[in-house]
């Protein structure tokens, strides 16, 4: 069971010291909300420009601090859950709005990172992924598992149909080689979603391996949302609604 977090006055004072947001505003907000939400949604405390900048830096610092600590504590980062993977990739891709970057972490059989590579660095319009290159890297690293991640410059964490198709193409290539794609993390702003956690990660090879380059086109925000088969209503169900 989760225990309710107690926030001390010293904590509020610290947040005030680091961000410049008046104590009264922080405390008022924290009466009904998690005060760390202020870092995600600073406008809830109506900050001025200087305070907004400080909030942004503190938020970025906390994300980077976590990964640095994780890296320094463990010589090799090990993933046991989508949260681990999300935190790790958010620290690298979090907040990137200029272009889409696709990363692959090549993992050993205990899901520890052997190597993380940027496999595609596109523009805001599209990215191109070369499956041959990923295959070469996977073989060179003698990996057992693969973890994919990319950012959506638009900020959405919803996987698009193209994201799912890309993952399926990679699964088609690696599954016959006994290399599992264990997750695909989507980063939007400083948030993330996990295809594995959401039950939409392709796990089986559905077609022959196709090594042709894959283009991830620009996706309009409205079309990001992907519906799981069980979420799609039948015509009868829709009629009832």
């Amino acid at each position: 069971m989760a225990t309710k977090q107690v926030y001390t006055d010293s904590f509020f004072e610290s947040l005030n010291k680091l961000t410049g947001i008046p104590m009264r505003k922080i405390k008022d907000y924290a009466k009904e909300n998690n005060p760390f939400n202020i870092l995600e949604h600073p406008m809830v405390v109506e900050p001025n420009d200087r305070q907004l900048e400080k909030i942004g830096k503190l938020k970025e610092f906390l994300a980077s601090y976590n990964v640095l600590k994780m890296t320094q504590e463990n010589e090799r980062i090990k993933f046991t859950s989508p949260q681990d993977a999300g935190k790790y990739f958010t620290s690298i891709l979090g907040g990137m709005k200029d272009k889409e970057r696709i990363l692959v972490a090549f993992l050993d059989n205990s899901n520890s990172i052997i190597e993380t590579k940027i496999i595609s660095e596109g523009g805001i319009n599209m990215s191109i992924v070369y499956p041959r290159d990923i295959l070469k890297m996977a073989i060179a690293n003698d990996c057992s598992n693969i973890l994919m991640a990319h950012n959506h410059p638009g900020g959405s964490t919803n996987p698009s149909k193209e994201d799912i198709d890309l993952t399926q193409r990679i699964v088609n290539i690696f599954k016959p080689l006994d290399i599992n794609v264990i997750d695909h993390i989507i980063i939007g702003g400083y948030s993330f979603s996990s295809m594995a956690e959401n039950g939409i990660l392709p796990s089986k090879s559905m077609d022959l391996a196709n090594y042709q380059p894959i283009t991830l086109p620009e996706i309009k925000e409205a079309s990001y949302a992907y519906k799981r088969p069980e979420d799609v209503l039948s015509i009868e169900e829709e009629m009832e609604l």
Partner: peptide, 20 residues
């Protein structure tokens, strides 16, 4: 002050992950 914010954040994550 920064140390306290980090520690509080870590406590909060630990509490949350207890559920997970």
């Amino acid at each position: 002050a920064l140390k306290l914010v980090i520690e509080t954040k870590e406590e909060e994550i630990a509490n949350r992950e207890g559920v997970d």
